[in-house]
Amino acid sequence: MTRKKMKGAASSPAYMTVVELRLYIADSAPNSVRAIANLEAICKEYLQESFRLEIIDVLEYPQRALADGVLVTPSLNKISPSPVSMIVGNLSDTSSVLRALGITEHVK
C-alpha cells in the first residue's frame, strides 16, 4: 500500500514551507494504524495543510524500506525541509514527533 497525501499547498501562507513526510507501516497492524492516526492529528493541528505525506506499506514494498534505510515499522521520515529526520514507533509522543519534524509547539 502506498498512499500519497498532499494538502493544499497552494493555499498555505507564503512563509510556511511544505513539509514532506514518508510513513512506513505494516498493513493495518495496530501500531501502524495508530501511527497514521497520530500523524494525521499532528499534521492537522500543527501543519494545517502545508504538508505532503506518503504512506508506504512495507509488506507490499519492502525494497523501498530498505532503500530508505528503514528497519522497523512504523517509521516516519521527514524528507524535507532539511534536516532530514526519522522517528520510529507509533508516534504517540507528540513532543518527540514535533521535535523530529522541527516544529515548535508555539507554531500552533
Binding site: 507501516i25 505494516a26 498493513d27 493495518s28 497492524a29 495496530p30 501500531n31 501502524s32 512495507v58 509488506l59 519492502p62 525494497q63 524500506a65 530498505l66 528503514v70 528497519l71 522497523v72 515499522t73 512504523p74 520510529v88 514507533g89 507509533n90 504517540s92
Partner: peptide, 26 residues
C-alpha cells in the same frame, strides 16, 4: 521494547518480519 513496532525489515534479504502481536492482529 515499548511495544510500538509492528514489523522489522531484514536488511539481508528484504523480508519483512511481523512482530507476534502485529501478526496476530493482522
Amino acid at each position: 521494547e515499548s511495544g510500538q513496532i509492528d514489523a522489522v525489515v531484514d536488511p539481508a534479504g528484504g523480508n519483512v518480519i511481523l512482530l507476534p502481536q502485529a501478526q496476530r492482529s493482522l
